[in-house]
Write a protein that binds this DNA or RNA. Structure first.
Lengths: 159, 159
DNA sequence: ATATATATTTCAGCGCACTTAACTAATAAA
DNA sequence: TTTATTAGTTAAGTGCGCTGAAATATATAT
């Protein structure tokens, strides 16, 4: 297979399938965990950023700060997020995952990894290595794209 | 890279990034299209199955048939889905995408493909081929897993 | 023919995410 | 110091997705 069009087609198709699959898995897990998708989105954001303020959440999710505040509040009441005063700016809050919140994210990722691993079990080691190589290529290019998208961002918020 | 653990790790990590990314893209598109995630889920299901009944939707989405009926109704009113009587079973409905609905799905996929293509532009042809090979492996194994999961399914509903 | 099961719809009601608007408190600018 | 700006919260109200229950109509079983 060297036809460029067919190569693109193959990749598009594979991506579609992966996406489709992942969507359902994720939805089911979140639902089973008793959370909503937006709520879980906040947990994930906190997992990746380690800490942030309410406005960081509203920016990232394209919702008003009022909505973000309300969502966060539910997570705080659920014991998944810790909301403290930002020592540098007393108007702002410093949001972090609690241990319980961290575990929730861990579990969800473990669940996904379980699925990925099950998939890998069905192919032989040589193919597994090929897939790993492709993933490392994609990881690299995704990081590259992320850089390109945020040239104006300060170093203070490594999303 | 031949260490099995590292191979798995690399793949898991790549999958996580792809998932994360795709989620946001999809959410934004759906929102911009004036639909909800569940509504769009139905369009996608109809895209893959070509036609189905209300209960197929409720089964697949893990919601009651009442909920499915209501969701479908909104899509019908929006001109995205056609709801006709199933000639084989007059209790059931035969749901299909309208031309407008089909275009909506096409556009959303094109949007995603655009993003995938942009990603591919950043890597050289040799790497692109490697990625394609990996995707075809994954596509194969995904199909295989799907088979394993539905051994009792009749041939009438190729989801 | 009668009883039962299936496919869908309608309705009342609940919880959630979201928005706008008004408000508090703290920082930054004049 | 006053004036604006920024971060976050609160409250009222909207719309959506969802459920449970009741209703309708068709299909299947006895």
């Amino acid at each position: 297979m060297t036809d460029p069009i067919q190569i693109t087609e193959t990749i598009r198709n594979g991506m579609d399938l992966l996406t489709h699959r992942t969507f359902r898995e994720h939805g089911r897990f979140v639902k089973a965990a008793g959370l909503s998708i937006p709520q879980f989105g906040i947990l994930l954001q906190l997992h990746y950023q380690h800490k942030c303020g309410v406005s960081d959440i509203s920016n990232r999710m394209d919702i008003t700060s009022a909505a973000a505040s309300q969502l966060v509040d539910k997570l705080v009441q659920g014991g998944l997020v810790e909301r403290a005063e930002d020592p540098n700016d007393r108007r702002a809050k410093e949001l972090k995952l609690t241990e319980k919140g961290r575990q929730m994210v861990e579990t969800s990722m473990a669940r996904r990894h379980q699925w990925v691993d099950k998939m890998l079990e069905l192919i032989d080691p040589a193919e597994r290595e090929k897939v790993a190589e492709a993933m490392s290529i994609l990881t690299r290019v995704l990081a590259q794209m992320k850089e390109q998208e945020k040239p104006t961002e300060s170093a203070s918020h490594p999303v």
